[in-house]
Simulated scan of single mutants.
Amino acid sequence: MNDTPWLKRLEVAEQAAARLADEYVGADVWLVGALAEGLAHQHSDVDLLLITPGPVAGPGSRLIQGIRVDVRAVSRSTVHEWRTLLDAFTVTRDDIATFRAARARLSDLTLLRTARPLAQTPDQVAVLEPGQRATYQRWALADRCEAAGSLAEDLLGLAQAGLYPHADLVWAQLARVVAQAETVAAGAALLGEKWLPSLLSSNNARFTPVPALPEPRWVSAPAHSPFFASVQVRVADALLALWPTDAEPEPVDEAGLGGFGWLPQRYGDGWFLRRGDDRVPLSDGRMRGWQQAAARRAHS
Rank of each mutant, 00 (worst) to 15 (best):
L112N: 02
L158G: 02
A189L: 04
L282H: 04
A134G: 05
D237N: 15
L199E: 06
G149S: 12
G131P: 02
S220T: 15
A97P: 00
E81S: 15
T208A: 13
L240C: 09
H41V: 14
L86H: 05
R100A: 00
L239R: 11
H166N: 15
Y267Q: 11
L35E: 12
Q265C: 10
G60C: 05
S202E: 07
R93D: 02
T110V: 06
V127T: 08
A167N: 08
G149W: 09
T245G: 06
L151G: 03
Q232F: 09
A18D: 09
A161R: 12
D168L: 08
L155G: 01
A102Y: 04
S61K: 08
A159M: 05
D95F: 11
A181H: 10
D47G: 09
A293W: 11
A73P: 01
A189T: 04
E193Q: 12
V252E: 05
D3T: 13
D168G: 14
E146Q: 11
S198K: 05
V231S: 07
A17N: 12
N204P: 01
W243A: 14
E250A: 09
G131D: 06
Q132C: 01
R116A: 00
D95M: 03
L156C: 14
L242M: 09
S77C: 13
G276S: 13
V219M: 05
E248I: 12
W262N: 04
G58R: 04
R274K: 15
G162C: 06
D253T: 15
Q124E: 14
L7M: 10
L240N: 08
S44Y: 01
D3E: 14
L282D: 05
S61L: 03
V79K: 08
L106A: 07
G38W: 08
G149K: 12
G26L: 02
P251R: 10
F260M: 09
L48I: 05
G259W: 06
A229E: 12
V233D: 02
R100W: 00
C145E: 10
A185D: 08
S107E: 10
A238V: 15
A223T: 13
F227M: 12
V127W: 12
V235I: 15
R105W: 03
L200R: 03
G268Y: 01
L155K: 00
E146D: 14
R144Y: 01
R133N: 12
L169T: 15
F89N: 01
E146N: 13
H166G: 14
Q232D: 03
R286E: 12
E248K: 14
D94G: 08
D22M: 04
